[in-house]
């Protein structure tokens, strides 16, 4: 029995680990949703494995709750998925962050100057992007 537990544990951990790698890679939030759904199902399998080994019946409600949580989570994210702008799907490197910050500061300085010099100009400030194209 110990062999079975170890092998199953290794398989489940490997599967969950690979799914988490997919959750990091993206590139869209829907890919991450699927990956995390697989992680939740692997958690159900792991809890069931634990209950099978120790012959405990009182952890079974956890399985019910986890399966519902997994489903409701995926459906909620899919329902509110929106069009993501290009480049938002990955983690930015330090150089890219510095370059974008410098650009933002330049834009703000330009806006300040044009305001001070009396020109009425519309400045466009994106506060992280709104819910463009929200899916109904």
């Amino acid at each position: 029995m110990t062999v079975v537990v170890v092998v199953c544990g290794v398989l489940l951990t490997a599967g969950a680990f690979l799914a988490v790698i997919r959750a990091e890679k993206g590139p869209s939030m829907l890919d991450r949703t699927i990956a995390l759904d697989i992680v939740v199902t692997t958690m159900i399998a792991a809890v069931a494995l634990y209950a099978a080994v120790n012959r405990r019946a009182d952890v079974v409600p956890i399985l019910v709750v986890l399966s519902l949580v997994g489903f409701v989570g995926s459906v909620t994210i899919a329902r509110f998925a929106s069009v993501e702008p290009e480049g938002e799907g990955r983690v930015r490197t330090r150089e890219e962050i510095a370059a974008q910050e410098a650009e933002r500061i330049d834009n703000e300085d330009y806006a300040e100057e044009s305001r001070r010099s009396g020109r009425r100009e519309e400045t466009d400030e994106h506060h992280g992007g709104g819910a463009e194209g929200e899916v109904r």
């Binding site: 079975v4 199953c8 599967g15 799914a19 997919r22 829907l30 199902t41 399998a45």
Partner: peptide
């Protein structure tokens, strides 16, 4: 049964990482 189930969960993880497209990854999931 536990071994079979764990193996399929592992295959699901591999599939969601390897498949080229969002729709194909849903099959794995």
């Amino acid at each position: 049964c536990l071994l079979g189930g764990a193996f399929l969960a592992f295959a699901a993880g591999v599939g969601v990482l390897r498949f080229p497209d969002l729709l194909a990854r849903m099959h794995a999931g």
